[in-house]
Design a protein around this nucleic acid. Structure first.
Lengths: 210, 210
DNA sequence: TTGTTCTATAAACGATTGTTTCATAAACAA
DNA sequence: TTGTTTATGAAACAATCGTTTATAGAACAA
């Protein structure tokens, strides 16, 4: 082989595919890749594509032209499972919610939710979340999670107060500190027994007008 | 013609294409459309696709299989033009900013910005926008606009105070009322000469963690 | 060395698919 | 009616493109 650097043929293919899609709007053919990556035969590409598919990087429909897809899509559909209002728990999805068709779903750029699983969205009703800088009509993107790290924004249900609140959560000896997103506001302190973790807040989305 | 309702063949094609793309991840062939819309010949589809392309609904690359694309894409790249901080005007893009490559760009779902033009995004630095329920690190999506309707969220530069603020804007006799998004806060009233409109707020985006 | 595995080259086959042609039917205006 | 434009149908052609086969070089271990 004359080109020593081409040992990374596969990575060059993996880089070429999204470039091509971005530029042309559809997937490359085997022969497009031959040209684009300066290879000399379709069989090389065929082989590498098989490897890449087996490794889970791409997906192809057999016998379908231009069907190469990067497995990581850049847009994701998040189910909009309901609304949050003052004085009532956040709807926590059970296993059914994921399979049954949600009333509505939200298309979000993948990088907004990262690689997380179990993502869902809720519409906020009323101004009860105002100390988390969340207004009526905002959409919160949640991750249902059992454990949190200090400083993460969590949705917690306060049993005594019978209300849900969105706060940054810090463990302290014998108590939890709930810190509002609005740093000018004072934190509140609660007993661990009084809180029920309902999820992490992944993102907040506010659409003005229309 | 046996089917009288098929006068809307074209609309059925226009509906079929995104459905197919959503489901399969690539564009349909002429023959896929024949099946999907229950037509009987590729020539019919060919004809309608030509009409649709001339009308600007779709785009095709001649001789390229599966190259049909809907002209309206569902994701849009918004230039991230800078940051907003307390006590300094919002960077208003000049004509250069649109052509020159921005440092960064933000992929957003198209429906977030609607059909608007002249959209750009800014990262908020500091807590100076807290009364608009906007925190440090939030991203505001702006539309550069000359005129506003009452009740729209605007970014205005207050000349005397030398600061920018995000408020809902209402015209009143002899003055402007600037209403914070946080309805618990009082509005402020300013003379029209004291304000300089810098844009409309289209959306707010808050990404937590990572 | 030998064998094995991964990668590269060349060429050909055959399926998929865009395009064209010709003929027919419908819709509509003058 | 007549003519004109637009939509439909069936079939065939030609280009694109996925796939296969057969061969060989390179890297590496035993």
């Amino acid at each position: 082989m004359r080109k020593p650097g081409v040992s990374k043929t596969r990575e060059s293919i993996l880089k070429f595919i999204p470039d091509f899609i971005d530029q042309r709007g559809y997937s490359p053919t085997v022969r497009d890749i031959v040209k684009g990556c300066q290879l000399s035969s379709t069989a090389v590409v065929q082989h590498h594509l098989n490897v890449l598919e087996k490794a889970g990087f791409i997906h192809r429909d057999p016998e379908v032209f231009r069907s190469i897809q990067l497995v990581e899509k850049d847009i994701i559909a998040v189910p909009l499972l309901g609304t949050v209002a003052a004085g009532q728990p956040i709807p926590v999805p059970d296993s059914n919610s994921w399979t049954s068709t949600p009333e509505e779903s939200l298309k979000l750029p993948r990088d907004l939710v990262g690689g997380r699983d179990n993502i869902y969205a809720l519409r906020v009703k009323g101004m009860s979340m105002i100390d988390a800088l969340i207004a009526d009509g905002d959409i919160v993107v949640m991750e249902s999670a059992q454990n949190m790290e200090d400083g993460e924004m969590a949705a917690v249900w306060l049993k005594e107060e019978q209300e849900v609140t969105l706060k940054k959560l810090y463990r302290e000896p014998g108590r939890l500190r709930l810190q509002p997103a609005n740093e000018q506001m004072k934190p509140i302190y609660v007993k661990p027994e009084n809180v029920e973790l309902q999820g992490k807040v992944v993102a907040v989305l506010r659409k003005l007008n229309r």
